[in-house]
Simulated assay, not measured.
Amino acid sequence: PPLGHDGPFTPQVVVNGSADAVGAAPGEIERLISTTPHAKGPALSLGDGKVSIGGGTAPGGAADVWLVRYARGVVEVPVARGENTGRTLPHANV
Rank of each mutant, 00 (worst) to 15 (best):
G47A: 06
G49I: 01
P2G: 03
V65W: 08
T35I: 04
G47K: 03
L32H: 03
R87W: 08
V51S: 04
P90D: 04
G23V: 00
G7L: 08
R72C: 04
A39S: 15
V13G: 01
V68G: 02
A24V: 09
P1V: 10
Y70C: 02
V74E: 11
R69C: 08
I33G: 00
A19E: 09
T36N: 02
A58P: 06
N16I: 04
A25L: 12
L46C: 11
H5L: 13
V75R: 11
G56R: 01
L46G: 08
G47H: 02
D20C: 12
S45N: 07
G82E: 00
R72W: 01
V77C: 05
P78M: 01
P78T: 00
P90H: 04
V94R: 09
A24F: 05
A80D: 11
G82Y: 06
V77R: 07
L32Y: 01
A19P: 06
G55N: 09
T36F: 00
A92V: 12
L67I: 14
D48C: 04
Q12H: 07
T10I: 08
A63F: 14
V51P: 08
T88Q: 03
P8A: 12
P2H: 07
L3H: 08
T36L: 02
L44Y: 08
G7T: 10
P1G: 14
H91L: 15
G27S: 11
G49W: 02
